[in-house]
């Protein structure tokens, strides 16, 4: 008779707290919560814009509330975290070969950061025009 009795370990719902790599993954996924709220604030801004100047200005001044400032500071940090994780994984989705050798991941990541800086500066200049 077989003495086999394989033991299946349970995976608890807090598995992502047990390993720093998993925790970072969850922060990355969790960034979407704050970014969702930010998108809703913008959607609300479009709504206020459609209601006229007074409504829109009320939306603008609501953004000056200290809670709003702190919130947006947090969103900025978490959005930057998303950017960093997104760029660091980007090479895995690239299937480019130069002279029969896979393109070095360093170049792909660097390319993303350079574009990011250009896009950011471009947007800042654009808004000032």
């Amino acid at each position: 008779m077989s003495k086999r009795k394989p033991y299946q370990r349970e995976m608890n719902n807090d598995w992502w707290l047990k390993n720093a790599f998993y925790s970072k993954y969850m922060i990355r996924e969790g960034s979407s919560i704050l970014i969702t709220v930010y998108s809703l604030i913008l959607a609300w801004g479009v709504f206020r814009l459609s209601q006229g100047e007074e409504a829109f200005n009320a939306w603008l001044s609501a953004l000056q509330h200290p809670i709003s400032i702190i919130f947006h500071l947090l969103v900025l940090l978490i959005a930057l975290y998303h950017t960093i994780t997104w760029f660091s994984l980007a090479p895995k989705a690239v299937d480019l070969y130069i002279k029969g050798k896979p393109l070095d991941a360093k170049f792909i990541v660097a390319g993303h950061y350079i574009s990011f800086i250009i896009v950011t500066i471009f947007c800042l200049v654009l808004i000032m025009l």
């Binding site: 790599f21 998993y22 993954y25 994984l89 090479p91 895995k92 989705a93 299937d95």
Partner: peptide, 23 residues
Amino acid sequence: CTFVGYCSVVCPKGVDPAAAIQL
């Protein structure tokens, strides 16, 4: 796959399965 990416970190042979899945 939700692209956790840990598989490629622990792989002792540099296979990079996360990249394979992504492609």
